[in-house]
Design a protein around this nucleic acid. Structure first.
Lengths: 225, 225
DNA sequence: GCAAAAGTGTTTGGGATACACCCATGC
DNA sequence: GCATGGGTGTATCCCAAACACTTTTGC
């Protein structure tokens, strides 16, 4: 079939699924829509990706503007997720969305042009478009990433306790892990080293602090879970 | 930053990396470009993805037209791969490409509007655009898919010998596997059953034929390699 | 001394790996 | 009978899983 009409591209958009842990619970950043369609519902931060800009550049600009989150400085990890392309996903017309997943810690949005809030992935408010499905997809991918890479580092501070490390895994996986087996296995991977610092807090034995030896993504020699 | 000019979308394209085994070697389908840019070079089958059509629909139409391959009927497996979006990847202007990876067996292209040929992934001809990088990305993903899913089925006929099965893995992985360990492990996964048919060919013991119990993608209980 | 979290070892079972010979057939 | 690929078993090692008590601190 040859085109008999001039080529018209669909609208290209970008959307970000931004995760962080809050009080040991996996949360995702959403903004509240101020206009139709889906006025009042919560949506992933995102917007139009124009000609002449990569989707990453557009995403960085848009997420900073709408959500007050700087993808380069406030996220420790970001990757492209999937491109959602069904014709009906935007009631205004065909919009293809290139989605990204990012992780960080202590993300505090700056001044932004939308109402921004983090919600636990297990109790999302009513969401716009197909964004609930996108969040589900991102969560599944995140679980996979934590099982075969060192991506947990994105959720943790430079110095952390093994209890914090385990809690990060448990928050993402959604189930508990055995403390002894977890420590034995994780330490044997050789991704972290003990420091000589301890953290004292509360009426109990102080915890030794550890740090990662690499802050870039690496594939584990033996996968998790 | 607010837009001061009307939104213009980049061109949206689709490209397919289509794999099959030929004489025990992993091959990829390429078409020869008849026009500039990259006239004479080999490229992935692909083209413009217009408004109102999903990228899968566009891909199906374009690959049938240009390469004579029907994605629905001639491929046993297809999945979205990645979206390549750098501004300079097409010299004619910014084109964002949603790429797919597909696998099949005995793919014989129908009448097509381009010269189509399969090339071993390890000895590609000069390729257009960033297509060599896309093929590399697809091959890496394919290796991963074979290690943690039953995706090999896409390369094999309904009834196959264990030697053929092992050869398919070896062609994708690019290295040899131990015959006894391979059989022990694969059979223990329970994805296949013996049939009571044998295949006699050549001056040697006949081989028992097996078949898969499922022809949809499943995650393995224990991953490969 | 007691509450609270940190830290630590052993046993067991299953799967990964390494490795070499016999079997059924066609000619 | 011989060449060719099909088919099979065992020993070892490492890792995953299951499981409970001692240590250090603040109050």
């Amino acid at each position: 079939m040859k085109y008999t009409t001039p080529y018209v591209a669909p609208t290209l958009t970008v959307d970000a699924v931004i995760f962080q842990l809050i009080n040991g619970v996996l949360n995702v950043a959403l903004i509240q829509r101020e206009n139709d369609p889906f006025k009042g519902k919560w949506a992933l931060p995102g917007g139009y990706s124009p000609k002449g800009e990569t989707t990453t550049e557009a995403l960085t600009r848009i997420v900073e503007y709408k959500a007050g989150i700087n993808i380069q400085t406030q996220l420790s990890y970001i990757e492209q997720l999937y491109t959602f392309d069904t014709v009906a996903r935007d009631p205004r017309g065909h919009a293809v969305s290139v989605t990204y997943m990012g992780c960080g810690r202590e993300i505090s949005p700056n001044e932004a042009h939308s109402v921004v809030s983090f919600f636990p992935v297990d109790s999302l408010p009513p969401t716009a478009y197909d964004h609930a499905a996108i969040i589900k997809y991102a969560h599944d991918r995140l679980i996979a990433k934590l099982t075969y890479t060192n991506a947990v580092y994105a959720f943790l501070p430079q110095y952390f306790t093994l209890a914090e490390l385990q809690a990060a895994y448990e928050a993402v996986f959604g189930h508990e892990l055995d403390k002894r087996n977890f420590r034995k296995k994780f330490l044997s991977l050789g991704l972290t080293v003990e420091t000589d610092q301890m953290r004292r807090e509360g009426a109990h034995r102080p915890a030794r602090l550890h740090r990662f030896t690499s802050d870039t993504l690496e594939t584990l020699s033996r996968s998790f879970e």
